[in-house]
Design a protein around this nucleic acid. Structure first.
Lengths: 240, 240
DNA sequence: GGTTAATTGACATATGTCAATCTTCATGTT
DNA sequence: AACATGAAGATTGACATATGTCAATTAACC
């Protein structure tokens, strides 16, 4: 049941929804029955975004939940004085369900496309209905929230208790191990955005990147980045 | 159905559990039926802690959920190099359900008593069972997690994008408006702990406190603290 | 060739560290 | 009750350093 690249999602509920929502045991949707899937997929919209477009906007109401099908996107908070704080980079099969579809309140972050993106918009209403009817799904959703929570606590400590070197090391390790899983990898984000992930000024980020390059820890080359000495990065990350 | 101060919780399931879990519409337990309450309360333990004692310890497994009945406690992360980050101060009827009873993993923070504390320990197992059986309760729990999440995002922005003055203003406003709801109020925490809430050194906190005192914004007096000009604090908080 | 992003340097300033002093407050003694 | 003692926290000052800001230059890329 391989996924065909150019197949239009509208025409392939069987093929690509099964792919999106069943093949990955990590997915919050993995516990759904065929019938449940029907409910969920009933009026979902498959939407394409170009690089740079805003997918979800902070402070708008949480009417939909989004499942990434292709491409990369950044999740960030629009904070004080126009500053941004990039929380994470999401990709294939990642799921965005923040900002309380349960309290009917507002999104707490913006999501925008880093590459061309294809994703499913699903009614929050339906998620909520399923949540009530299928306790396995409810538990999966709860786990998802717990993980998010735990990631936030981690970020909180990293950003408030480490020096810049440690924070830069963290973002590099994050990109290599959690986002791209290759080495070297192609950066779809600017230095400014790297800095926004590390809560620092872009100039500071660049300077530290250069130090790392000089000491042979990394080999940046335009938009590509190679980690030469992961041990060193891990050690720098640990020592703050 | 007034709560009697010295009544032992073991003897008053009717009285004080009803008080704890029903009277407050904010409580995650407000949607429970009498029968549900029975399940939950079946083997709960009412436990007293003295000021300074650890109630829940980071990195231990999430076997219980805790409901505060009396007293104040701090919730904090034990971070890098012995540094602490105080996330919040909890009190009467607050509910601690972090660190994933759903994923069977580990607590992400420590909770310790700031005053003498009386609280209920409830089996995570029972929470989980109820979560599956009562979808209203599940939704309440989900809301609770969402709120926590949202608070964390807020903290993240405050701590990474504001100058120290803004962060000090934030803690003062938080204490006055969210924790004590009186003015002046008695501080149950040290300057070190105030600094740990603001991700800064205690000396820096003290210095800024003095500035605020000099400009007539606050009137600290030993362990008591009075906010004289809340508008000013709000403005300082907003401008970073 | 022109626009944007990346890099670099010089500098200002926010913040942490260390050491000294000063409170506060509990304890014990007369 | 009055007073000494000591320990822990609070405050202050001097200083070091981490980090941000601004401006200039260079590189990358349509």
């Amino acid at each position: 049941m391989a996924f065909k690249e150019n197949q239009n999602c509208e025409d392939c509920k069987e093929v690509c929804c099964a792919r999106c929502f069943h093949n990955d045991s990590q997915s919050v949707f993995s516990r759904l029955t065929k019938d449940d899937l029907e409910v969920l997929m009933g009026n979902r919209q498959s939407i394409r975004f170009s690089s740079g477009e805003t997918i979800l906007k902070q402070n708008t109401s949480s009417t939909h939940v989004v499942c990434m099908k292709r491409g990369l996107a950044k999740v960030y908070i629009e904070g004080m004085n126009g500053k941004k704080l990039i929380l994470k980079i999401i990709g294939e099969l990642d799921f965005i369900c923040g900002g309380g579809i349960f309290a009917n309140n507002v999104r707490h972050f913006t999501v925008s496309a880093l590459t061309d993106v294809e994703c499913c918009f699903i009614d929050s209403e339906r998620i909520l209905r399923l949540f009530s009817e299928n306790s396995n799904f409810a538990i999966e959703l709860m786990k998802h929230h717990n993980e998010q929570n735990s990631a936030l606590l981690n970020t909180l400590v990293n950003l408030t208790q480490k020096y810049m070197h440690g924070r830069v090391a963290d973002t590099l390790l994050y990109l290599k191990n959690d986002v791209f899983r290759t080495n070297p990898f192609q950066l779809p984000i600017s230095r400014q955005e790297l800095a926004d992930m590390s809560a620092m000024a872009k100039e500071s980020y660049v300077r530290i990147l250069k130090e790392f390059k000089t000491s042979g820890i990394i080999k940046p080359n335009g938009n590509s980045m190679e980690i030469l000495n992961e041990e060193a990065l891990i050690s720098i990350s640990k020592n703050g």
